[in-house]
C-alpha cells in the first residue's frame, strides 16, 4: 500500500532564542496514519506538533502539511489550520460560549456554513463523543473528561483531515482518562489521520501505526508498536519506557 504523506517535515530546526528545541528533525505522516509521539518532558514533542499547525514556526528546513508549505508570513496559514485540528492538554474551550456555540463558532465564522448546517454538524459530533445532552451547558459545568470530548468535537466540526493531540489526557483525573481515550480510539478506527503526543502506552499500543520517541529535540527512535515496546533499540528509549511502564 502506497500512502501519500499529508505531513512531510524535512530537516526542521527550531530555536527559542538560544535554545535549540528541534534539531534537524525529519518525519512523514501518511494519510490515515496514526502516529504516537512520546518522550521525556522538554524533549520538544509539543513544539513539533505545534509547528504542524503553525502555532510555532520552524527556522530552517521544510514543512509541508496537507499540500501547504508552512512558513512565517504565508498567507495560506488560515486555510492550513482549517484542515488541521488540535486538541490541547488544557482543553481551551471558550468559556463564554455554550458547548453548542463552541462547536459552531468555527464552522460559522471561519468556514461560513449556514447556521442550520453548523448546528446539525455540531449535534452530530456531540453524539459521536457521547455527550449529546450537554449542548446547552457552559464548559465550566462539565467534568474534565466531558470538556476534553467537547474539544475533540470542536476539532471534528471543522471537518479537519488531520487532528493533533497534545497530551489530551494529562490534565484529567484518572477516572476520566478512559472516556477520552475511547473516543480517540473510535476516531482512529474511522481512519482519521492522527498525530498524538501521549504517555498513555496502552492506548498507543492499541491505535498506533508508528511510535516515535523524541529526546532532546531529536527523533531518537521510530518503530511499529510491537517492536517499539518489546525491542527498543536505543538506550534512551529503553530507559524512558522503563519509567513510564513501571509506575
Amino acid at each position: 500500500m502506497t500512502k501519500t504523506p499529508v505531513i512531510s517535515a524535512r530537516n526542521l530546526d527550531k530555536f527559542y532564542g538560544e535554545f535549540h528545541a528541534l534539531k534537524n528533525l525529519s518525519i512523514d505522516v501518511a494519510e490515515g496514519e496514526r502516529v504516537v509521539i512520546c518522550g521525556p518532558s522538554g524533549s520538544g514533542k509539543s513544539t513539533l506538533i505545534r509547528c504542524f499547525n503553525a502555532l510555532e514556526y520552524h527556522q530552517s528546513g521544510q514543512l509541508i502539511v496537507d499540500g501547504i508549505e508552512v512558513y512565517e508570513g504565508s498567507n495560506e496559514i488560515i486555510r492550513l489550520r482549517q484542515n488541521v485540528g488540535m486538541v490541547f492538554q488544557q482543553f481551551n474551550l471558550f468559556p463564554h460560549l455554550t458547548v453548542l456555540e463552541n462547536l459552531m463558532i468555527g464552522p460559522l465564522k471561519v468556514r461560513r456554513v449556514s447556521k442550520a448546517d453548523a448546528e446539525a454538524t455540531a449535534r452530530r459530533y456531540l453524539d459521536r463523543v457521547h455527550i449529546p445532552d450537554q449542548a446547552d451547558k457552559y464548559p465550566r459545568q462539565l467534568s474534565g473528561g466531558q470538556q476534553q470530548r467537547v474539544a475533540i468535537a470542536r476539532s471534528l466540526c471543522m471537518e479537519s483531515k488531520i487532528i493533533l493531540f497534545d497530551e489530551p489526557t494529562s490534565a484529567l483525573d484518572p477516572e476520566m482518562i478512559n472516556e477520552v481515550l475511547d473516543v480517540m480510539v473510535e476516531l482512529a478506527e474511522d481512519g482519521m489521520t492522527m498525530v498524538c503526543v501521549t504517555h498513555e502506552m496502552g492506548f498507543a499500543r492499541k491505535i498506533a501505526d508508528r511510535m516515535v520517541f523524541m529526546d532532546d529535540g531529536e527523533i531518537v527512535e521510530v518503530a511499529d508498536p510491537e517492536t517499539f515496546f518489546t525491542a527498543p533499540r536505543s538506550e534512551r528509549c529503553r530507559d524512558f519506557l522503563e519509567k513510564v511502564l513501571h509506575h
Binding site: L55, G85, N92, L93, F94, A151, R154
Partner: peptide, 11 residues
C-alpha cells in the same frame, strides 16, 4: 490557550 484554540480552528 484561548488564542491558540481560536487560531487552531482557523480564525
Amino acid at each position: 490557550g484561548q488564542w491558540e484554540a481560536a487560531r487552531s480552528i482557523g480564525m
